[in-house]
Simulated assay, not measured.
Amino acid sequence: MYVDQPNQAIEAANGVRYAYRRCGLPGTPPLVLLSHFRGTLDSWDPALVDALAVERDVIAFDNAGVGLSTGRVCRTARDLAADTSVFLEALDVRHSDVLGYSMGGFVAQELALSRPHSVRRLVLAATAPRGAPGVHGYPDDVLAHAEADNLGIQDYLYTFFNHTETSQRSGLEFVGRYIERERDRDTPIPAAALAAQYEAVVEWGIPDHGALERLAAIDHPVFVAGGGNDLVVPPRTFHLLGGALPNAKVKVYPDSGHGFLFQHYQQFTEDVLAFLR
């Protein structure tokens, strides 16, 4: 189970010591998880990871300067993609499927563009294409919760879940799973690293219609997924992303927000594994 996996570390060619956790079926194609803004190893829903790990070798890690990893925090999605590649090379993972969530979806797109032969299939969850309208930074209300010094339950519920009784109840269930790991938890992101990551988010969202044309070069199979009531990334953006990719399918999950994959983890896992097969 993901909550029981030890924190591991590996030193890469760039001198950075990357923290990671790995679980699932050894010998199956690796599935690499790329996290959201201010996410760490502990930010992934254990129920989601465990369900994916039934069929796959699942790898989660902290980028340079984040959580338990050493080094300097990346300030652009392009640098995050290069950083991800260095980590995977250290693990001798040369070809993998990638699940990029939110900011991690920016990184996944850059990875597919800059190192296409390293990627087999892409899952882009609650994310947007570079330069899309309406994604230049987070809305003020979302940012107030996302940048809170000490994230509380209400910050998670507001940002990640739809403001309905059913979705909020799912959010509370997620929080229960989130705190299940009591020992050897990852290190929260400090303010300086948080600011650097937000630079990457803002830089990605600078309006640029021409940047959308880059997506035509991603000919990998892609599954674009999101919540129908996402406050962080406008749901219309999921269809824009899917339409700009040559080989994509799009699914929007009902009564859910930015954390749709935690709320609907069972259905999302079924959809992801079917797609990866």
Rank of each mutant, 00 (worst) to 15 (best):
M1V: 14
Y2R: 14
Q5K: 12
N7M: 10
Q8C: 10
E11K: 03
E11S: 08
A13R: 01
R22T: 14
P26F: 03
P30M: 12
H36M: 15
T40Y: 04
L41R: 03
D42K: 00
W44D: 09
A47L: 14
D62S: 14
D62L: 13
N63E: 04
V66Q: 09
S69E: 11
T70S: 10
R72N: 03
A77I: 08
A77K: 03
A77T: 10
L80S: 08
L80D: 03
V86F: 08
A90E: 09
V93K: 03
S102Q: 13
F106N: 00
F106R: 00
V107C: 02
A108G: 03
L111D: 10
S114K: 10
H117L: 06
S118N: 05
R120M: 10
L124A: 06
L124G: 03
T127H: 01
P129I: 00
R130G: 01
G131F: 00
G134A: 01
V135T: 10
G137E: 12
H145F: 12
H145V: 11
G152F: 07
L157M: 13
T159S: 13
T159Y: 12
F160Y: 08
F160T: 06
T164G: 00
L172P: 00
L172F: 00
F174K: 11
R177N: 12
Y178T: 11
Y178R: 13
D184P: 10
R185C: 14
T187C: 10
A192C: 09
A193G: 15
A193F: 05
E199W: 07
E203G: 04
P207K: 11
E213G: 06
R214Y: 02
A217I: 02
D219Y: 06
P221Q: 00
N229Q: 13
V232R: 01
T237N: 09
F238P: 01
G242C: 09
G243D: 10
N247M: 05
A248G: 11
V252R: 11
D255R: 01
D255G: 07
G257W: 09
Y265P: 07
Q266P: 01
Q267N: 06
T269Q: 09
D271P: 03
F275N: 12
L276C: 05
